[in-house]
Design a protein around this nucleic acid. Sequence first.
DNA 1: TAGCTTTTTGACCATGCAGTCAAGTAACAC
DNA 2: GTGTTACTTGACTGCATGGTCAAAAAGCTA
Lengths: 184, 184
Amino acid sequence: MRADARRNVEGIRRAALDVFRTGGLTTPLDEVARAAGVSKGTIYHRFGSRRGLIDAVVNDLVAARINAIIDEVDALEGPLLRFEQYLLRTWLLQYDEPAANDVLMRTLPDSEPLTTLFERSCHFGAQLLHDAQAAGVVRADITPEDLKYLILERGVIARACDQQTRDDYHRRLDFVLRGLRATR
Amino acid sequence: MRADARRNVEGIRRAALDVFRTGGLTTPLDEVARAAGVSKGTIYHRFGSRRGLIDAVVNDLVAARINAIIDEVDALEGPLLRFEQYLLRTWLLQYDEPAANDVLMRTLPDSEPLTTLFERSCHFGAQLLHDAQAAGVVRADITPEDLKYLILERGVIARACDQQTRDDYHRRLDFVLRGLRATR
DNA sequence: TAGCTTTTTGACCATGCAGTCAAGTAACAC
DNA sequence: GTGTTACTTGACTGCATGGTCAAAAAGCTA
């Protein structure tokens, strides 16, 4: 690989991280190209497709954030707190990071790293749901499928209703959480 | 107005009702033209713009549905029931009728009939919210603005997550309603 | 039916995006 | 320095959409 090629690959990666961070994984590749100071053709030549580029940056871009939520929540005590914090933090991540949202919503062509991330998050959530239901603190009629939808829904909302402030978004999340608790 | 023109206006109106009914008010006008058996140009010539066409059909298309909800709910007794039925029926309408959803989400260029409809629904909802809060059956920290968002959110969801069955959609609405009730 | 006027047509422009490829450019080895 | 080969470019195709307009067609009237 020639020196200029290596330089460009790095530049494109960096530009993609930057552009995808703020605009999500569906941002036009022309923008990435412009940010990297190369032509669109170079991106396709180097990464094959949008998916190839995403695969090359998704780890640095979102894996850490999603995995951090799992780790942090796993360190908490109490089934209700764990369940609610998982949802709350995931929902906030969806607002803060459009790219993470794209992963959680599966907006994109399936690729191995994306699927792995998504599955890990879902599996963890399902476990928390199960524990919380066993403890009787969360409604028993909620299914893991519902949980996926609660996250998918929030993703659609975070993307479409971007005029609401983070504080409003956050405040309204509490309404939803309340609806999931078991009625005593 | 010439006979063929009158015939076409009627045909376009009918086609628009049909096409908008299933596809919402943002369906490409080419589809309406095809359904009416005329060219796209004729629609623009007769109705000026997409908005003109919408104005010409919105009453037959959605006004009745939205007004019906208001009337039906207004005939019910009990602040919680009234509030929850208003939301529930509105949310279901958003699933069933993409065109009504477009009105409730204000997806479209503002036009007088659309705004009137929207305002009427919002105003009615705000009144129900106020009554329910005064009766202590709904959380006191919900604002009329939140109510608008709850409807806007559901609209985004109904449009984006169209692979879920009506039953699933309906079942999940209950989660949200529960979250709005006052905790006793 | 001839001729005037209204109406319709569909090709056309513009926009925004994905993705491709022939041709030009630049690195590198000798 | 020069020739080879890797690399990059940007104009191109293709697709979907909104919207326009000169020319063709059709209705109406006398």
